[in-house]
Amino acid sequence: MKKLMILTALMLLSFTAEAFAGVNVVATLPFIGSLAKEIGGDRIEVATLLKPTQDPHYVEARPSMILAARNADILMYNGLDLEIGYLPLLIESSRNPRIQPGKPGNFDCSQYVSAIEKPTSVDRSMGDVHPLGNPHYLFSPGNVLRVAEGIAEGLSSVDPDNEAFYKANLVAFKERFRKKEAGWRGVRLKGARFIACHKIFEYLAAGFGFEIVGYVEPKPGIPPSAGYIEGLIESIKRTKPAAILCTANYGLNDARALAAKTGLKVVVLPQDVGAQAEAKDWFTFMDLAVSSLDKGR
């Protein structure tokens, strides 16, 4: 019995010994983890807490996430209250002084973002409104570029020895960004009209000049009633949108039901990097989003 215990203890110790020598990055969302990997390359190890198929609005702090946060040198998160339901708890339970608020290891990507849709007043009768502005800026190339710049700064601040390496990767990222952006600019979406499931695609609309003329949800996070859908169908007759936008994990069933009643197409956009096989990194994710919109127009 004693021998068994000693053996187990030794096994556990050997597990703890195989720690990664570089920077341990913990990212909440897949696109943040993917951006960090672009900038950090092989000098960092990235653990991403959420699956690309998981709704970022409803996340529970699983104990395995607490364990990941415990070993993080830097925790990168989306901010704008998107992680409010689990991140403060995760940070406290991690018992990790490096990632506490105010420390360089507590990295809020939204500090580099110029958010849209900041409400002037908010209460919960309006539904699940984000009081700091729309948090789904992963669809905004300009903002993501600034976040990538910020990530290079953030990684340099926790790992100054590799600053030149991170900067060089950022330059390569910017180069790729310029080429890709030119391609996206060629897609003409200006004036197109869509219905959307939830306020996820506002940055796309603002960036590409299309219009979202109605939502399947009456208020953010509130499922539609039959009466509301009837009203929406009436308004669709007037506004004549091209398609209904949703993601595979948010609103697909509601979108299909509405499509059956109105004859509109359903356009499934990727929710995050990795949600569809083609969306391997943030660039291919945006490629997929833009081409899906172009096809659905």
Binding site: G79, P101, Q111, S114
Partner: peptide, 18 residues
Amino acid sequence: QPEPPASGPSGLTGLFGG
């Protein structure tokens, strides 16, 4: 073109709510 907000402690991080 909207300018990015200044980074640093003045930017509202929103970790503990808005």
